[in-house]
């Protein structure tokens, strides 16, 4: 059986940032305290002309550079997001046209809170495995919404990552497993501009139960042990939850450190765990193994094991690394942030 996995990956993070202290200043809150309790210092902000589609296109262009394939050979595009610009009219067809993929295309926009991007990866993996497509493109991209003054406003950020799935990979998908239950910890109703969340309920019964159970079931299924992994990546709603989940599962904190991009860019929702993976792939060596567990409210987790191949060394230099996007930044104040997020009525 030929190995199937990630043939090319790419990310994109808008270059504008707002500091947690700047948001706290507006609401009379203690910025330092919030920063420490969330483990987030600043978050990325989309420019006025950036949205889920533009982020997805830029990330996909980087994935194509690394994959070194003709985009015409991509036969499936799945975008996971909580902020598709249209409710009706797919983001996927715009992205497909913008990067020049085949029109003989399996395409759909996916929604499962923050795990829709990894769900796209599972679909592409299954379709390649079934021989239905040669290559599939899975993207997690978001310009996350947070109600002004709400706790989410400190972390809801923008960014995304794209993965081309096929043969001759730079990281083999060894196996994948999902765990899902009806747990409404975070939701946004039709027509509503901002999501609502259930406060502390988003922790134990939601994030931790799903991340820990999916990972535990995955380890049981595959027979892999904590020591078999060199890096782990979990969904990052803040800087604290993934570290706590790693501890619960018996992983040392140093294995998750490389993936923790949340501290400098915030929670990029569907892009979150995938940007963590992108940052790990930027440094991983051949034969190293990566565990990824995403989390989407509502609620579910997708778990993967990736085995890095020799192809990584040659391909990863073909596009900007995640760190370059994180470090290339310009700060905005709350006034400009409000304008860029389209909150001003003209």
């Amino acid at each position: 059986m030929t190995d199937i996995g990630i043939v090319g990956y790419g990310c994109y993070i808008p270059r504008l940032r707002i500091r947690v202290e700047e948001i706290a200043r507006i609401w009379g809150a203690d910025g330092k305290n919030i920063k420490n309790s969330l483990g987030v210092e600043e978050k990325s902000v989309p420019d006025i002309d950036e949205d889920t589609v533009t982020i997805a296109v830029e990330a996909s262009k980087n994935a194509l550079k690394r994959a070194r394939i003709n985009p015409r050979n991509i036969e499936a595009v799945f975008i996971g997001s909580e902020s598709h610009p249209y409710v009706v009219n797919p983001s996927g067809t715009i992205v497909a046209e913008a990067i020049g993929v085949s029109n003989n295309l399996f395409c759909a926009d996916l929604e499962f809170a923050c795990k829709a991007g990894t769900a796209g990866m599972q679909i592409c993996y299954a379709m390649v495995k079934a021989g239905m497509i040669k290559y599939g493109l899975a993207i997690g991209s978001d310009t996350a919404q947070g109600r002004p003054g709400d706790a989410l406003e400190y972390t809801a950020a923008a960014g995304g990552a794209a993965f081309i799935i096929g043969n001759n990979p730079l990281a083999i998908i060894e196996d994948t497993l999902s765990f899902a239950t009806d747990t409404p910890d975070f939701f946004r109703r039709e027509g509503e501009p901002y999501p609502k969340h259930a406060g502390r309920f988003t922790g134990e019964p939601a994030y931790f139960r799903h991340v820990v159970t999916a990972t535990t079931n995955f380890l049981k299924k595959t027979g892999l042990k904590q020591d078999d992994f060199d890096y782990i990546v979990f969904h990052m709603p803040n800087g604290k939850f993934p570290l706590k989940a790693a501890k619960k599962l018996g992983f040392p904190p140093e294995k998750i450190k490389q993936s923790l991009v949340v501290k400098k860019i915030g929670n990029t929702y569907s892009g979150s765990s995938l940007l963590g993976l992108s940052n790990v792939l930027d440094v991983a060596k051949p034969n190293e193994r990566i565990l990824l567990t995403s989390y989407g409210s509502g609620a579910g987790s997708d778990c993967f094991s990736f085995l890095v191949t020799d192809a990584i060394e040659e391909r990863r230099c073909s596009a900007p690394r995640t760190r370059e996007y994180i470090e290339n930044k310009e700060y905005v104040d709350y006034g400009l942030y409000v304008k860029l997020k389209g909150k001003l009525k003209l």
Binding site: D47, D49, E50, D51, V53, T54
Partner: peptide, 25 residues
Amino acid sequence: AVFRKLTEDSKSGIIKYGFKFKIKD
């Protein structure tokens, strides 16, 4: 060239996407 939102007809209208340019760092 970068891919960005060019304009939108209105909040309920079509969104137009396309190329813009970015200075090389």
